[in-house]
Design a protein around this nucleic acid. Structure first.
Lengths: 235, 235
DNA sequence: CGCCATCTTGAGGTCTATCAATTTCAGTGG
DNA sequence: CCACTGAAATTGATAGACCTCAAGATGGCG
């Protein structure tokens, strides 16, 4: 995936784009930057911070509590716009952390607002993108609020498997168990225990920062995954 | 609050509207309907369901799990558009439940999409509205994922106090403890215990479906509420 | 080969859920 | 005005899920 087509490709899954629209989107992603794993792209409460489109690698948004607790709000994969929802606020709502070495492109706020006035159709697509992130958040709320640890972790794994679009049983999972815990509202220790529990059931296995789903059907059944959420359907 | 100005008033908090924009919004809210408390406006997975703008009363969106567990995703107050985020999907993403007797106006999907093409500026405001709902969801994730019950309930109470815009210490809270529990990922029994715990600390009190915050400052301190989230700031 | 972060495993404790029995309360009809 | 009723809230007892602390194993990387 080349840098220029990064966001374009995400939007083309939603609708066909004409050349002008592609050009507008391309202009947003002019200066791709590299960040090292562990680097913080943006801190919480930053004034007038840019958005970032993620081109390569994994990142996440984080909110910190006064007591030092951490909550991972979203895990970002290439093609996503990070912190898009902060458009309604003057300050950034969360910290952005590079989980691997990444390539990302800062997008000044004004530039996005320009798109809104120039292309109503793109604006509507941005709306849909935001709505999909919204849907991911709601499934996370259900996971954390109402599902026991094993189901919670299973759902998370299935979600990532789908979102990575890997067609193999196996895919790269560059998340520490500490990050997974902070995403799912559990301790890293309990992530470890739950992980081995799923391994003992022969549902998954891990080698070398890669995760393998041994039996997707059984895994889905085990954690009561509702396949209805697999195909979101058109706008 | 008259029916016609319901959505308009919400938008006017974000930006000034000209007459044409007000007219466009007003046209959306043509047929206000009444629903009884406990009535279900929309079931999960419904095809091509309309949106609803809420004019009077309280409502919420709910997702049900196969085992019968319930998760309340959002609590809606007058002026809000319910289930706005389902715009990215062909099916409704959650059930809509009237918590009190309410007045609401169904808005066909096409009508909203019409607005997007007619008024880019209103589209942008809808975007901001969605982003704010997004922010409420993320605070909920942090509450459920990383805060103990007492803080969680305290944050919820403070959020409602702010959102109701009541300038008194006391405001109407027509939520059963069962609904509160399903919103905060805890059992109704534990909501009761936590509630009396806050009462024993003289932070709150309740009479007759009304909740009184005895000492907002102490309550905020007790549940480590970060005042930074009080003023979201302009776009 | 050795280092540092990550992961694993055990023991003990805390928080919250569940079950079940009352009590309170709002609403209804006599 | 009061008794009746069903829903909601309270309270106690018990169980289980998950957390914390701490020690040891693993594994990627220079």
């Amino acid at each position: 995936m080349t840098a220029r087509t990064c966001m374009v490709s995400q939007f083309e899954e939603l609708a066909e784009l004409d050349d002008e629209e592609k050009a507008l989107l391309g202009k947003l992603e002019s200066s791709v930057q590299s960040y090292a794993a562990g680097e913080i792209l943006q801190t919480e409460g930053e004034e007038n911070a840019p958005f970032f489109s993620l081109h390569e690698g994994w990142a996440c948004s984080i909110r910190l509590l006064p007591g030092g607790e951490r909550q991972v709000l979203e895990v970002f994969l290439p093609g996503q716009i990070m912190d898009l929802h902060s458009i309604g606020f003057s300050r950034s709502q969360s910290e952005l952390l590079a989980l691997t070495a990444i390539k990302a492109c800062p997008i000044p706020r004004e530039r996005l607002e320009m798109i809104f006035s120039k292309s109503p159709r793109l604006a509507q697509l941005f709306f849909v993108v935001l709505a999909r992130e919204h849907a991911l958040l709601t499934t996370r709320i259900i996971d954390i609020g109402r599902r026991p640890a094993a189901e919670r972790l299973g759902h998370f794994i299935i979600e990532l498997k789908i979102r990575t679009r890997s067609r193999e049983k196996e895919f790269e999972l560059p998340l520490t168990q500490s990050i997974i815990g902070d995403a799912l509202g559990m301790s890293s220790v309990h992530v470890s225990r739950t992980m081995t529990q799923l391994k003992d059931l022969n549902l998954i296995s891990t080698h070398n920062r890669r995760l393998r789903i041994e039996n997707m059907k059984e895994l889905m059944h085990y954690c009561r995954f509702d396949p209805a959420y697999l195909s979101p359907g058109p706008t």
